[in-house]
Amino acid sequence: MSALSQLDRGVAPIETGMLPRPFVVRSRREELADCVTLELAALDGEPLAFEAGQFTMLYVHGIGEVAISISGDTAKPDSLIQTVRAVGAVSQAICGLAEGARVGVRGPLGNSWPVERAVGKHLMIVAGGLGLAPVRPIIYWALANRDRLKSVDIVYGTRAPDQILFARQLLGLSAADGVRVGITVDLADQDWSGQVGVVTDLIPSMLRDPDETVAMVCGPEIMMRFSGQALVGAGVPAEETFLSMERNMKCGIGWCGHCQLGPHLICRDGPVFAYPAVRDLMSVWEL
């Protein structure tokens, strides 16, 4: 059998798709004890236009390459913002990069959040833990397009009050911005006046008109599974509920098959999927 052509597979040409572009760390900000946001700039000065929800493959010389979502504003493509949690060799190396250090960047890769579907409707963003990073571009977009949306509600769950990602930014959003933010944590002491519980408890009370809502969800897979159930259970149409999936990635452009999830390659067909496309896959034991 002859090898499939690139066109058949619908993937990027391997010659260009595998080549990292050199970027430099322009600034670095510690978000949480194990989490850093880097602002990167292309050495050749060319902006990196991207869409909300896309990711890059970030390469640390001599260590390795990992998939990281873009957490910046699509309207500001001259700086590439990425928020990374140190969990293993490569992500630790990324978090340890100092200003001026060089990295390789492939991308932007993957599809994007279908933000335009929310126009004229209520937008609900549901995020858990570090899952706030891949949805932050939606928040920037929603703030810039506030008058085109009926409402914007952000539901965020994390471990404890001191683990709120982008805390100043998130807590700074207010009714004045036309955004309602609900935060819930797993456990807290009495200094915390917000909610304690899981995001799925907050979803029903924050939904306005489920029929007219578009929901975008990102977080640990189990959290997304139960959030999908809560949203659809409360009446949000399944096909208007979107999730950003994660699997270990190698090539990021649909060649190697590392990130296969059932019939999907997450890098090529995702990372953003409509809920019906992944609902059943999330509860399969071995995949």
Binding site: V87, R159, D186, G197, T200, D201, G219, I222, F226
Partner: peptide
Amino acid sequence: AGRLQSTRLRLLDLYAPPS
């Protein structure tokens, strides 16, 4: 049942670092 479900989900410590 809802409180039990919420408690079980939090027992999983979903937002903890993998380590």
